[in-house]
Structures are given as structure tokens and as C-alpha cells.
Amino acid sequence: MPRYVNYCLSIIVTPLFITTVLLFTLVSVNVSFAFTANLTPQQSKSVRLGQVIKKVNLLKQPNYQSDITGSIAAKEKVKIQTRKSAWYFISTATSPQTSDLSGWVNMLNVRFVAAAKREGELGVESLFSSVTNDSLPTVSTGVRGFDVDDLKKAKANLKQVALLNTYAVSAGAAARFAKQGKLKVSHIKVKED
């Protein structure tokens, strides 16, 4: 191979190599930063599994004046597709065999099905084991927890209070922030007024 070809190749390859290394470094730094700063939920919760708490009518529109398109028996499992105001749009298609019913129901007639314990919690049960429960839990340990025992061990931390104080924002800044989000005061009667 003529020497100048070799020379040309090295001119092309070296910057490519450096760029790749640089990019890789940047990406890995970015990724590790994301790990420390990210509070986003890990799994998507767009469609949830629920259970109706009593026999409910399925409505064509999200209001009580709407036509009834069907009904669902108490305790039947449903998929919650979306919410509009106080109404969930649900479907009963939990398996291919089931006939496909869907419609609007008042959100208070539905409970999310209790999920398995989250990662890091022991005793993983079947994924959709039981509907919401009213029983009080007994286990009280947790990593970086905030429990009665943790409170008992606590000492007053005045430095953290001082830090908290530096995060406070003015009412004016909050109003500007609300305006950016197009939040408007709604004239709903607040009981305490």
C-alpha cells in the first residue's frame, strides 16, 4: 500500500476515533447524571387494571344523562383507558375470549387493582393479587425510610431548615409560574373562605 494512502487513512480515522471517545464520554456522564437527578416513575401507568366495586352501567358519554350501552358486574376486572373529569373510560377486554365491552363509569365506582410490592420489597405476590385493601400493614422497615423508628432516632437539623428557606419563592414568582402553565383561579367556592 502506498505510504500516502496510509497517511490519508490516519487523517480520517484519528478524528473519528477522538469524536467517538468524546461522544461516548459525554453520553456516559449524561446517563449517570440522569440516574441521580431523575424522579420519573419507572413504569408507564397510562393503562391501569381496575375493578368495579359494584354493578355499574356503562355510559356512552361521561355524564349521567348519557345513553347506557351495557353494564358490568360487581368486582369485574377492567382496564382503565383514560379519565375525563370524574369519569373513567373502561373496557372489559382482559382476555381475548371475553366479549369487548367499553364505556364511561364514575371514577368512584372503580378501584385500581393493588399491584405487587415494588422492587426492593420482599414477598412478591402474583401481579394482580387483590383489590385495594383496608387492612392495616404491620411491616415497618424501609430503606431511607421515614417511620416511627426513624423519627425516634432523629435530631433537630437546623442547617437543613436554613437550606429549605433558600428554596422559598415569592407569591409574585408563583403567579408568573401559574400564568406560564395557563393556570387560572377558578371561582369555585372554597369552604374555608
Binding site: R48, R83, S85, A86, M107, L108, V110, R111, F112, V113, A114, A115, A116, K117, R118, E121, E125, T132, N133, D134, S135, L136, P137, T138, V139, S140, T141, G142, G145, D147, A178, K182, L183, K184, V185, S186, H187, I188, V190
Partner: peptide, 24 residues
């Protein structure tokens, strides 16, 4: 009153209810 979707309040309670009750 503050212009938020008030039913998000119900969503929150639903979410809490859906976490295993003996979750520490």
C-alpha cells in the same frame, strides 16, 4: 380553585390504594 384538575386528587388516593398495603 387554583385552576388544576381537581379529580387528580382522586387519582392520588387511587394510586395509594393500589400499592400493596403492607409495603413498608
Amino acid at each position: 380553585k387554583s385552576g388544576y384538575d381537581a379529580f387528580a386528587y382522586i387519582d392520588n388516593l387511587q394510586i395509594i390504594a393500589s400499592i400493596a398495603a403492607d409495603d413498608s
